[in-house]
Nucleic acid binder design. Structure first.
Length: 450
RNA sequence: GUGGGUGUAGCUCAGUUGGUUAGAGCGUCGGAUUGUGGUUCCGAAUGUCGAGGGUUCGAGUCCCUUCAUCCACCCCA
């Protein structure tokens, strides 16, 4: 016998897990499409050189790679952004710019697992390429807010930074060459605190204590966006790069607010750096206020030359990625996921098998009326059937025995509120029953959000 | 990749210094209740103690290896 098992970091999804998962994907799709992003897909496998070209040592280490049966060196994509760069370089002639696409698909990273971190997980990316307009930057923030709201979340914070602000300061301090090491240290600031971060910067990045202090002062500006912007201007001291970056941040924040994002969800935070070095402008991370420890659930930013490896054409872009599996882990920990094992809301009890064809006819009529309906398949005791319906998460059970069929009425049981409604029903006039069920479902939906 | 915790019934866990046939609660199934579900009562089933090897008269318990999972570092969705 072969032991049935799954690989480390790879998972099976039972209906209870898959139902909210599909719902989340559907919400993401609808949100992206409502902004005009169009779907694309790319292969899971790419030539190794395509994936490792831009990658750092870290991504190289996490890359699943092998030689295929034709002797080609191939790798499994570890994000959707590098495939997009290849895709754009390859097809740009047939695409109009700005090109807006969304891409919902699994990616693979051979790293160590943890809660909300898997080796196979789904990302929901949306990007706009071919424009440097600040409107695209603003739209990214607006989409993130719309997406999180559509999922049913209210308590989240979108942290915004602009690489140019820090670059400007580093330029001002004469530290451009240490940028990567400084960013790496800076990323630890929330975890290890200011003093240790300063120590590490001095040690790992080889800067002076004064320089480290200036960087940290910049990174620790807090308060309202106006306050932070004013403080940044003071510290950057007229450096042109930083000034450009700060002006851009101001435009993004005011634009996002005009675009419907509540101001309190936006927080300027110069300390967020993102490990990926391909970001060149604005950077965002999205944290759940009630579960910040899970990390960012939606991150992105501007990259002004991602396709440079694949084409001479200048292709600036901006976009972000929702971590579907991480978000689902978070929603589960916050107990915001319904425990439902059925995708259909209505179950018809097989109460009296003599009327089997009536039940089939009724199910047909209800489905034609737009309702998801399961007809119970065994003539078990009614109590057992109702128990099955309640535990599987159906909202409505239809009960009709010989008495009901004789009088032209059926019982609509509201399983969530435990009440029964008697409604007239005939196969050639199902309208009243459908209306009754819909009334119950509207109530049920209110009490049954994510 | 490095370091640490955990792994016993479907789930949450107990299992005393190694000692006969491995337990509890919840859940499941059957019945009380042959036309009405989340309560109550009665009854029942269920484990190669993650896997493999070793020490021992004897291992769920000790040792080694391995797999999975969680935590920290690293990195990130």
């Amino acid at each position: 016998m072969i032991t049935p098992r799954t690989l480390k970091g790879f998972r099976d999804y039972l209906p209870e897990a898959m139902i909210p998962r599909e719902r989340l994907m559907q919400t993401a799709r609808e949100t992206f499409r409502s902004f005009g992003f169009a779907p694309i897909d790319t292969p899971a496998l790419e030539y190794l050189e395509v994936l490792s070209g831009k990658g750092s040592d870290e991504t190289d280490r996490q890359l699943y790679r092998f030689t295929d049966n034709g002797g080609r060196d191939v790798g499994m994509r570890f994000d959707l952004t590098v495939p997009l760069a290849r895709f754009a370089a390859q097809h740009i002639a047939q695409l109009q710019t700005p090109f807006k696409r969304y891409h919902i698909a699994p990616v693979w990273r051979g790293e160590n697992t943890q809660a909300g971190r898997y080796r196979e997980f789904v990302q929901c990316d949306f990007d706009t390429i071919g424009t440097e307009s600040v409107l695209a930057d603003i739209e990214m923030v607006v989409v993130i807010n719309a997406l999180m709201s559509a999922i049913g979340l209210e308590r989240f914070t979108i942290r915004i930074n602009n690489r140019q602000v820090l670059s400007g300061l580093l330029e001002h301090l004469g530290l451009e060459s240490h940028t990567v090491a400084i960013l790496r240290s800076l990323d630890k600031l929330p975890k290890i605190g200011r003093e240790k971060t300063a120590e590490e910067m001095v040690q790992a990045a080889g800067v002076t204590a004064e320089q480290a202090d200036a960087v940290l002062e910049l990174a620790q500006c807090t308060g309202s966006t106006d306050e932070v912007l004013a403080a940044l201007e003071r510290i950057a001291d007229g450096n042109p790069t930083a000034a450009t970056g700060i002006a851009r941040l101001r435009e993004i924040v005011t634009g996002a607010i005009a675009g419907g994002v509540p101001a309190e969800r936006l927080q300027l935070d110069v300390s967020i750096a993102r490990g990926l070095d391909y970001y060149t402008g604005v950077i965002v991370e999205t944290f759940l206020d009630d579960l910040p420890s899970i990390g960012s659930v939606c991150s992105g930013g501007r990259y002004d030359n991602l396709a440079g490896l694949f084409t001479k054409q200048h292709l600036p872009g901006i976009g972000a990625s929702l971590g579907l599996d991480r978000l689902l882990t978070a929603l589960q920990q916050l107990e915001l996921l319904p425990q439902v094992a059925t995708p259909a809301p209505v179950m018809i009890a097989l109460f009296d098998e003599q009327h089997r064809n009536d039940y089939l006819q009724m199910a047909y009529q209800l489905r034609r009326g737009g309702l998801g309906v399961e007809l119970y398949s065994e003539p078990k005791k009614l109590g057992a059937q109702l128990k099955y319906a309640a535990e599987k998460g159906f909202d409505v059970a239809i009960v009709a025995g010989s008495d009901e069929w004789a009088t032209g009425k059926v019982q609509v049981k509201d399983l969530k509120r435990k009440i029964a409604i008697t409604t007239a029903y005939r196969h050639d006039a199902p309208g009243e029953l459908i209306a009754t069920i819909n009334r119950v479902l509207e109530g049920a939906q209110l009490a049954d959000e994510y």
